[in-house]
């Protein structure tokens, strides 16, 4: 076993070395790399290019969407590998952003939660297919997660089918609310978007509706495939 792996590693390093020789011959750069890009371009240089490339964005849109906040700055600078100290700083920053629903209820309406979780649009700006700002935003959770048995979902996040098995204790509701409102508070630099707060897609009450969609025993997330309507 070990021997075989060693020889595969050896062969691969050989292949990679060969690849580098070829790349050098044709003067093309090596395989793209996040770290390499940052050796050539600084954040400020990139933002300067962004300002020339997004001429139609308002100052407000620059601040909320184009500029990195503290958390994304840290994730970019560490290539998504913050050390313990940096992770703690992100958690602190995100905890300060977290807001609870005005009525204090973390458990909303699961039916509306399904609509929000399925929605794919909201906050898109520009000349074509821009979204009506008065229309509630969607979260497109299905892009990354399988959520309902037998229905298509993405594989970038874990399957959430049967999530309700964890119950609806205050601790579970709090964890679920926090994960959807602000995943980076729990997993610094996770690829899961932060959904709550300024500059993100959902309102606190929409997040509470999604908590219900995930945890309510009646929700299709927690029903066997046979019970699904279509």
């Amino acid at each position: 076993m070990n021997k075989q792996i060693t020889s595969i590693i050896g062969a691969s390093i050989f292949l990679m070395a060969q690849g580098n020789v070829l790349a050098a011959d044709s003067a093309l750069p090596d395989a793209p790399s996040w770290a390499e890009s940052q050796k050539h371009i600084s954040y400020d240089e990139f933002m300067k290019a962004a300002r020339q490339s997004f001429p139609y964005a308002t100052p407000e849109q620059y601040k909320l969407r184009v500029e990195n906040d503290f958390t994304l700055k840290t994730c970019n600078a560490t290539l998504d590998q913050p050390n313990a100290e940096q992770s703690a700083a992100i958690v602190k920053f995100e905890k300060a952003r977290l807001k609870m629903p005005a009525d204090g209820k973390l458990l909303g309406d699961w039916k509306n939660g399904e609509v929000v979780a399925r929605g794919t649009t909201g906050d898109r700006i520009g000349f074509a297919d821009a979204d009506n700002p008065n229309h509630p935003n969607g979260a497109n959770c299905f892009a990354c997660h399988v959520m309902i048995p037998g229905q298509p979902g993405g594989n970038m996040g874990p399957s959430l089918v049967g999530y309700g098995k964890r119950g609806q204790s205050p601790a579970i509701l709090k964890y679920t609310y926090e994960h959807v409102y602000d995943a980076k508070m729990l997993v610094p630099c996770t690829i899961m978007p932060r959904y709550g707060g300024e500059g993100h897609l959902l309102t606190a009450s929409q997040v509470a509706d999604i908590v219900a969609f995930l945890t309510d025993p009646q929700s299709p997330v927690n029903q066997p495939e046979a019970a699904q309507k279509q």
Partner: peptide, 19 residues
């Protein structure tokens, strides 16, 4: 070369409302 690396930077840079 500079433009290429700017593109490489954009490919890996996390930003926007969805991080």
């Amino acid at each position: 070369k500079k433009s290429y690396h700017l593109g490489e930077y954009m490919f890996f840079h996390r930003w926007g409302e969805m991080d």
